[in-house]
Design a protein around this nucleic acid. Structure first.
Length: 154
DNA sequence: GCCAACGTTGGC
DNA sequence: GCCAACGTTGGC
């Protein structure tokens, strides 16, 4: 099993929105970055665990856990001219963009903030903390995953 | 709201 | 294939 982190803006779609969905599940549409696309299409597997990260907000950080329940499949919003994610260059015969479905697992007791994570020696080298990182989907190492779970309980 | 960092686009 | 211009992300 692998571990991941996915970013979302709470004003647009936060962890509470995921928890409020039917079956607490939603498709992760709108990713228009090739690196993130490749991970969703090729690497994320059913049962993989996902940190849900709130970005672009007052207190950026990890707020809970979700789980991959459906592996990569074409992101149909790319073919919908009315969607804000419409990409005329994505051909249904040869889809350019992919998404996965994730299901709410649990919300953290508290937010493990970005600021806090930056100060942790044990999290050195974590992708999220690297300068200028803008990926909205990224892998998390098991040791980092476990350390963050400990931080939550402090 | 600012701005640094990064990805993409397109002219050459 | 280079690289300047532009758009977006996201912390602050």
């Amino acid at each position: 099993m692998n571990y991941w982190l996915m970013k979302s803006e709470p004003d647009v779609f936060g962890i509470d929105d995921l928890a409020a969905m039917p079956r607490k599940t939603d498709h992760w549409d709108g990713v228009r970055n090739y690196q993130a696309r490749n991970m969703m299409r090729d690497e994320m597997k059913k049962g993989d665990q996902v940190f849900f990260y709130h970005s672009n907000c007052k207190e950026p950080g990890i707020v809970g856990i979700a789980e991959v329940v459906k592996e990569g499949y074409p992101d149909h919003t790319a073919w919908d001219p009315k969607s804000k994610y419409y990409d005329p260059k994505s051909d249904p015969e040869n889809p350019r963009w992919y998404m996965v479905n994730i299901k709410f697992v649990r919300k953290f007791d508290r937010t493990v903030s970005l600021q806090e994570m930056k100060q942790e020696k044990a999290l050195e080298g974590m992708k999220l903390l690297q300068r200028g990182n803008r990926l909205s989907v990224m892998p998390v190492e098991k040791k980092h995953w476990q350390h963050i779970l400990k931080m939550e309980k402090r």
